[in-house]
Amino acid sequence: MQTASTVLMIEPVNFAYNSQTAENNFFQIQQKDADIQQKALKEFNDFAEKLRSKGVKVITVKDTADPHSPDSIFPNNWVSFHKDGRAVLYPMFALNRRVERREDILETIIEEGFTISEVKDYSPFEEEEKYLEGTGSMIFDHDYKIAYGSVSLRLDEDLFRKFCADFDFTPVIFHSYQNVNDQRLPIYHTNVMMCVAKEFVVICLDCIDDEMEREKVQEVIKSTDKEVIEISEDQLQNFAGNMLQVQNEEGTHFLVMSETAYRALTPSQIGKIENYCEIIYADLQTIETNGGGSARCMLAEIFLPKN
């Protein structure tokens, strides 16, 4: 159950740079371009079509113009769908991202033939300024019931532990950093530095500055018998950690990433990945630059049982 064959994607209506998330998402760069929405929509449609062409089921829901949610293209931060029938709503750091939580999207998932037996809502923790931004902040190893989490303003350690207790995951907690103007600042989401697939893990170990934490993460990965494919901090800056493994309905696996990420990889790294699965990559440059998120952020996996 590590990989899903169905994903949710949110079609952008008014995609834009979000100054609220840019407070601690250092991947964001504001472009002065009147065509950002049009370019983002084309990237979105081309990406969804590439997934569908490989047999991955993509459920798309259109964003709403009002209220304006510039980051709605990244649904994995506010919702996750689990094999026991539970859907989870998450507390979000940015005020203007909280409007992304829409009941009608859950209804659409049900209409597509899936069962939601319970909605687990952690969003009230926003009142305590505690945040846990879904599979942006947490990386799940479903087969081994392990959850990796890098502490930041987007992942509250206590809330992460609570989630893991509620969903029977073993938490692996650490801190990761990136260079920003000659400073080492926390990486906002774990999923930009780490991807767990069925038989391998792509990770930037160099951004875990604490040696004991780095060794602990390596030991946990080793216990799962998954190959470690290391990436550098420069590759991380090109979204090479922001990947997701999916499968089609025939069970064929694919590793999904952006073209930026793919071009940043070495032939050796690509070869190691292709030992396990085919790579799907798409041009997401406008979305990456203005949104500070990439391919993995655009996909909310659906593990729910079918009705």
Rank of each mutant, 00 (worst) to 15 (best):
I187E: 07
D168M: 09
F200C: 09
Y122L: 02
Y122Q: 00
S69P: 06
D225A: 11
T64F: 00
I229V: 14
I59D: 02
D225K: 13
D156Y: 02
S176C: 06
N242C: 14
M243D: 09
E213P: 07
A87F: 03
V61A: 03
T6S: 03
Q247S: 12
F81S: 00
R296I: 09
C297L: 14
W78D: 11
G55M: 04
Q2S: 09
A240I: 09
L153Q: 08
K42T: 12
S19L: 06
N76Y: 09
R154N: 07
L255R: 05
L304S: 05
P12V: 06
D283I: 15
E111W: 02
D206G: 10
D168N: 15
H253Q: 11
D141S: 10
I10C: 02
V180T: 02
L284R: 15
E288F: 14
L185S: 10
T21R: 08
V99G: 00
Y144D: 11
S123P: 00
Y144S: 11
D104T: 12
N25R: 01
L265N: 08
P67E: 14
K130E: 15
S294D: 04
E211Q: 04
D63M: 00
N77C: 12
Q285P: 12
D46F: 01
L236Y: 08
E133P: 05
E259D: 15
A94E: 12
L155M: 12
A165Q: 15
L244P: 04
V192G: 01
Y262R: 11
N238D: 15
L153R: 08
A197Q: 03
D46H: 04
E219F: 08
Q183N: 14
F114D: 06
N77K: 06
V192K: 04
S223L: 11
L304N: 03
V13L: 01
G55A: 04
A240W: 13
F15T: 08
E227K: 13
G271A: 11
N275D: 15
L51Q: 02
L89R: 14
F93G: 12
Y144T: 01
N181M: 11
S5A: 03
F140L: 03
R52N: 02
F163R: 13
D46W: 01
N14L: 03
G292I: 15
K226I: 11
V180K: 03
T252F: 05
D156I: 05
V196G: 05
K57A: 06
